[in-house]
Design a binder for these strands. Structure first.
Length: 311
DNA sequence: TGATATGTTATCTT
DNA sequence: CAAGATAACATATC
């Protein structure tokens, strides 16, 4: 599912391709996805793209921001002049864009490419300036759970999702929320009597971890997902903390897991799904011992673990 | 055909 | 009030 590594992958793509583009207009095909007034972002230029947990923010130069949560099946796909040649859309996009799952289209104009002109053509700068090209950012969402909110940049913190987001594991260059240090993690884990896995996935306590990485981190740390958080020893907490950072980093390296509909900002798949430690491996052999991976429901979510080596 | 999957939020129960 | 359970959302896929 789209979790920290997946959303970070999209963020990096948008940073690369979207910054400098001006929003010409927004075509909202499914109104329930968008809240706020799209007129507020028309004419605004993209100056930054940020990520908070699993949430994305596109900042404009007119003091408005676009806050986005892709939930389970959202996709943000860029098409425009910054694209390198031959980018093949994944099948998960559902055909050429826009398609029946495209609910919002941001129509953009790229800024003129100044450095592209060489010395000889300096004279042409006037025409060059008028040569901004069209670009598009498509929001696709099969299950329509995601949301896009137009909000004044200064009021982002008022959105409940951002306001209530817990500290997140420090695995990227810059993070928008408080970093989850080992000390902080210890404090959170020690103070709660809930099962450890639902705790890892609780965005209000820890930001960015979802079902895939929670399962894999607990497997890596050899901890039973159903253990009460309070019952973990300091050594186990430390091990789990390191496992969380480890699996998230591998997820980042693999540019996310293309489970369900995840694709990056160019519509390409990630590859962490080829590296799952336990996630989705019900009935298969444990990668560490002879155990058979079992699936249970914890906190209403599918939970995979090896009863033989996760204690 | 019907069960399943899932992140987040809302609502109800304990 | 905290925390757990459950449902709701929507739809492709098995």
């Amino acid at each position: 599912m789209p979790e920290l590594p997946e959303v970070e992958t999209i963020k990096l793509g948008l940073q690369k391709y979207l910054i400098g583009h001006r929003i010409e207009g927004v075509d909202v095909r499914l109104p329930k996805i968008v809240q706020g007034n799209v007129k507020d972002i028309e004419g605004g230029k993209v100056i930054a793209v940020r990520r908070f947990g699993k949430g994305l923010v596109i900042d404009l130069d007119n003091d408005y921001s676009i806050a986005i949560h892709i939930k389970l099946t959202g996709q943000l796909i860029y098409r425009g002049p910054n694209l390198r040649q031959k980018v093949k859309l994944s099948k998960k996009v559902g055909g050429s864009l826009p398609n029946k799952w495209t609910h919002v289209i941001f129509k953009l104009k790229s800024q003129p490419v100044r450095q592209a002109q060489d010395k000889k053509t300096k004279v042409k700068s006037a025409t060059q300036n008028s040569k901004a090209t069209d670009a598009y950012l498509y929001y696709n969402d099969i299950r329509q759970f995601g949301w896009i909110r137009i909000v004044e940049s200064s009021k982002l913190k008022d959105l409940s999702f951002f306001r209530d987001l817990g500290p997140e594991p420090p695995v990227t260059m810059s993070i928008g929320v408080q970093p989850l240090t080992l000390e902080l993690f210890k404090k959170i884990v020690n103070s709660l009597n809930t099962a450890i896995k639902p705790l890892l996935m609780d965005q209000k306590r820890i930001g960015g971890i979802g079902n895939i990485y929670a399962n894999d981190a607990l497997f890596d740390a050899e901890i039973d997902p159903g253990r009460k958080a309070k019952s973990l020893s300091d050594a186990e907490i430390k091990k789990l903390y390191n496992s969380i950072l480890k699996v998230l980093k591998i997820g980042l390296r693999e540019e996310g897991a293309s489970e369900l509909s995840f694709v990056n900002a160019l519509g390409e798949e990630g590859s962490y799904q080829n590296h799952f430690l336990v996630y989705g491996r019900e009935g298969q052999k444990c990668k560490r011992c002879n155990g058979i991976i079992k699936k249970i429901i914890l906190g209403g979510r599918g939970t995979y673990f090896c009863p033989n080596c996760q204690k």
